[in-house]
């Protein structure tokens, strides 16, 4: 087994607010290797996005604090890295894509200029980025421009050289998301963090973007963290999945194992809430209740108040994470065990 690209161990994150101290992340563990696409799922407010932002150290401190835990990127502890080195890592080795492709591009600057700026910034940490195709005598800006055009082509934007002169508003939502992906890929990142990259897009565009991310993994052997609330997206795109609830990773494993044999009651409840091909009208199972108040979280398992399998043990102590199958782990005292289920 290859060495881990990213290793998050027992990560805790607190946020201070008017109401008190919120325990937003409560011991998150996650290991991503090259070639893996990890889907991080859960309801809103479960800490999915904050996990992603923590890896890039983009959570403002204060109000946030990391009392415990480590994030290792190829063995280097990001929590102890000096700010300027972290910045270099962000521009170059860790790429990020966010949900809204509109607000992450400057509307008054041409696409090409924005990509060139990122390319030059990335090249300031790794000059070899620009030397690949264009000979040096053309100057760095020209090289950066060529690199930008090549990346736009790679993310499937036709006539890339000409589109460099376009402004963001001349692109559709899907095209803008492609530009942002191109931007995230400029520094040839080893890890790509995509936070709900297709939520604002149409299904047809979504399918294309997800294919694009998969081909990036196949071609460059990168690791991907795909944060989403859509289990369908996870089932079709990811190799692995981590289910988060109220700041904990409650179930992890290969996609096939988790989706075919969900062991945590929360994962099962999430899946039961998706309308299926043969769900009879009115028979969809909602999950009652809301994600708990993270300032005064319930003791023990945080899902216990909404769980129909909860016992006194669940309410007293948080269950440790244990395997239910090779590579498939769950944090639950009463995991659901069952044979493989037929397709629905």
């Amino acid at each position: 087994m290859s060495e881990a690209l990213l290793e998050i161990r027992d990560l805790h994150l607190t946020m201070s607010s008017f109401d008190g101290l919120a325990h937003v992340l409560n011991g998150v563990d996650l290991t991503v290797r090259r070639g893996e696409v990890w889907g991080v799922v859960g309801e809103s407010g479960c800490g999915k996005s904050l996990t992603g932002l923590s890896i890039s150290r983009l959570v403002p401190t204060p109000p946030a604090r990391y009392p415990q835990g480590s994030i290792r990127f190829e063995g280097e502890d990001l929590m102890r890295l000096a700010p300027h080195r972290m910045q270099a890592l962000r521009g170059k080795r860790i790429g990020m894509i966010f949900q809204d492709p509109t607000t992450n591009l400057n509307p008054t600057v041409r696409i090409g200029e924005q990509l060139v700026d990122v390319a030059l910034a990335a090249a300031s940490h790794d000059p070899s980025l620009l030397d690949d195709a264009t000979p040096q005598q053309f100057g760095r800006r020209r090289q950066a421009r060529d690199l930008a055009a090549r990346l736009l082509e790679r993310v499937g934007i036709p006539d890339a050289q000409a589109r460099l002169a376009s402004y963001p508003h001349e692109f559709s939502g899907g095209m803008r998301q492609r530009v942002l992906i191109a931007m995230a890929l400029i520094g040839r990142p080893d890890l790509l963090i995509a936070d709900e990259p297709t939520t604002a897009l149409d299904v047809s565009v979504q399918a294309q973007i997800l294919k694009l991310i998969q081909s990036m993994v196949a071609d460059h052997d990168i690791g991907v963290i795909l944060i989403t609330h859509n289990l369908g997206v996870v089932a079709e795109t990811c190799t692995h999945v981590a289910v988060m609830y109220a700041g904990n990773v409650v179930e992890t494993g290969p996609v096939a194992a988790v989706i075919e044999r969900p062991a945590h009651p929360y994962t099962r409840a999430l899946m039961a809430a998706i309308p299926m091909r043969d769900t009879p009208r009115g028979q969809l199972q909602g999950l009652p209740g809301v994600v708990p108040d993270l300032i005064r979280p319930p003791p023990g398992c945080r899902f216990a108040p909404r769980c129909d399998r909860a016992t006194a043990e669940c309410r007293a102590r948080f269950p440790g994470t244990g395997p239910v199958a090779p590579g498939h782990a769950v944090a639950c005292y009463h995991p659901v065990r069952q044979p493989k289920i037929a397709d629905g």
Binding site: A207, N230, G232, V234, A272, I274, M276, Q338
Partner: peptide
């Protein structure tokens, strides 16, 4: 294009 998930 719609992503599908099979559910137990």
């Amino acid at each position: 294009a719609a992503p599908k998930v099979r559910v137990p």
